[in-house]
Write a protein that binds this DNA or RNA. Structure first.
Lengths: 151, 151
DNA sequence: TTACATGCAAACCATTTGCAGGGTT
DNA sequence: AACCCTGCAAATGGTTTGCATGTAA
């Protein structure tokens, strides 16, 4: 089951933005991304769709979509920001330190405990990020858990 | 109760490093820090102890101490890395988005759940970071929870 | 036509690095 | 004396920005 496509036409209309070829191309690339690419990689992919796209435009568009809540920007370890579609339901990340691969997961229990701990400290949660840096378990490495995630 | 002081003399001796005035000064500043300062701030403080310290030396020393496991480097949101003494017991952070203040916390339950989730995915945890961006709860803001942390 | 968007290059910011001179052992 | 360490300034890498030009509406 797929998340709704980014409706760049609607976004532009609503916000009084122009619908340019570059924005279309970048959105298309984001749409198809199943990984967590950085700006440079997105630029690489976007130029295949339309060679007339500057890296700065990619950055500008990414910031734009992030503002609109369409995208999430992650900074894993050090290194460039990496982007992904903002999911309806928040999730966290495993980062395989050997391959750089990112795997999403969600634990309602952890979410719930965070809420509880924050409350105990007199805080209200605005957002959070949980990144677990991992390597494949040497033994009993179960292949990808059942279902990509019960989204 | 205070964490053990950084024994820079011992570290240098063990690793064949030189015990310089700069290192002493930076370590002293780190020692006294009760917050999570960035490199520039540490440099500012260090130059008060000894004006002859270059920012690059601060960076070099911080990297050194991080390697030795004495320090932890955090990157909260975007912005410069911020440093703190590596605690015997891992902890996570609340970041007050309004004031920038960082509050430490620890939840064994969360740690445990992470372990469990990682295992389910066939991963072995190398490290993790959990940052909860918060603001003071509007109502019923209980003042700092009992004890700074039951270290 | 008229803003807004883009490309380009320069600016930026945090951090790292090359190198010649200094200071510890 | 030998070699590590430092200061300085320049380089780096990711990202942002100023500005003249291009283009969607």
């Amino acid at each position: 089951m797929q998340i709704d496509p980014i409706d760049i036409v609607k976004i532009c209309k609503e916000c009084g933005l122009r619908l340019t070829g570059q924005r279309r191309a970048i959105v298309e690339v984001l749409q198809q991304a199943r990984d967590h690419p950085d700006a440079l990689e997105l630029h690489r992919r976007a130029t295949k769709v339309d060679p007339r796209i500057a890296l700065s435009t990619v950055y500008r568009t990414l910031s734009l979509l992030e503002e609109k809540g369409i995208l999430e920007r992650h900074i894993f370890g050090s290194g460039p920001a990496r982007f992904e579609r903002a999911d309806a339901e928040h999730h966290d990340h495993f980062i395989d330190v050997e391959s750089g691969r990112v795997v999403e997961f969600r634990s309602d229990k952890i979410e719930q405990l965070q809420q509880q701990v924050a409350q105990e400290h007199g805080f209200e949660i605005i957002s959070h990020r949980l990144e677990i840096y991992v390597k494949p378990a040497k033994s009993g490495k179960r292949e990808a858990p059942r279902g990509k995630r019960a989204k």
